[in-house]
């Protein structure tokens, strides 16, 4: 009997395996990214900048031009590439630690400059690769290896909300938060990422998609319980949805 391939390895995946931990959602998000790049047919002009930590090796997984493995400055690197090759599609994959802590300046300023780049931010409420330390996105009361008594807002402040913040900036075309913990959410995540890239293709402005992602080893939960944790805890603090979605931005310049 002839057998037909109905689902296979994405064409842009370079290697046979990923390094992500069992139950980690980054592999699912990587799959979403592959599908979006292929459906928009932008692989030939896409340039990716990955972060430090869990996204670093994505620079090796994608059969497109990539650089990365550096913690925080992805948006600055991407800004330069995009300015030099405006026809390319430049995106950054970065974690919440680099986005909300060490790289907040690079991230915010790339939005303030209305860079026509796309940022994929990953919110797993901790620093993943380094061993689950407290991140800007760590939930209040959540115990991590550097908040052993739980995150206390009095001393550690409140969780960082990237899309809500970026939505307030004029040069932002699109800012959304999505999750991939159910297949329906995965579909919505894919649509959001597609929208974000479309804004860049159309030259509208800066675009951000934040992905909620499970981190089983650092949450000390089974992959199954992580889904419950996302539903019951993460999504309460970090609501899903579009925080800004515009097709045009007024770039008119007053003359002095």
């Amino acid at each position: 009997m002839d057998r037909q391939l109905i689902y296979g390895k994405p064409g842009l995946l370079t290697g046979p395996s990923l390094h992500h931990c069992p139950g980690c959602h980054y592999g699912i998000i990587l799959g979403v990214l592959f599908e979006v790049i292929e459906e928009l047919d932008i692989g030939g002009r896409a340039i990716a900048v990955t972060g430090g930590g869990c996204t670093a090796r994505w620079a090796r997984y994608l059969d497109i031009d990539t650089t990365g493995g550096i913690h925080g400055p992805g948006p600055a690197i991407a800004s330069a590439i995009k300015r030099i090759y405006p026809e390319s599609i430049v995106f950054v994959a970065q974690g919440d630690g680099e986005q909300g802590a060490i790289g907040l300046g690079y991230f915010m300023n790339s939005a303030l400059r209305a860079e026509k780049i796309t940022i994929m931010g990953f919110n797993n409420a901790c620093f993943g690769t380094t061993g689950g330390q407290m991140a800007p996105t760590t939930l209040l009361g959540m115990k991590t290896s550097t908040s052993p008594l739980g995150r206390n807002p009095q001393t550690e402040g409140f969780p960082f909300h990237a899309p809500e913040l970026i939505a307030t900036i004029k040069g932002t075309a699109y800012a959304a938060r999505v999750s991939v913990h159910t297949s329906a959410n995965r579909q919505r995540a894919k649509a959001a990422l597609k929208t974000a890239f479309q804004k860049q293709i159309d030259g509208v402005g800066f675009s951000l998609v934040e992905f909620i992602a499970a981190c089983p080893p650092n949450w000390h939960l089974s992959p199954g319980d992580c889904l419950k944790f996302i539903e019951e805890k993460m999504l309460v603090e970090f609501p899903l949805g579009d925080f800004k979605n515009v097709d045009t931005i007024d770039y008119s310049m007053p003359v002095f």
């Binding site: 650089t67 400055p73 991407a78 330069a80 300046g105 690079y106």
Partner: peptide, 17 residues
Amino acid sequence: SDGEGAAAYMLFGGALT
């Protein structure tokens, strides 16, 4: 840029083009 750290990373990205 938004500082010399960013300028140097822009230099990094730009050089790779």
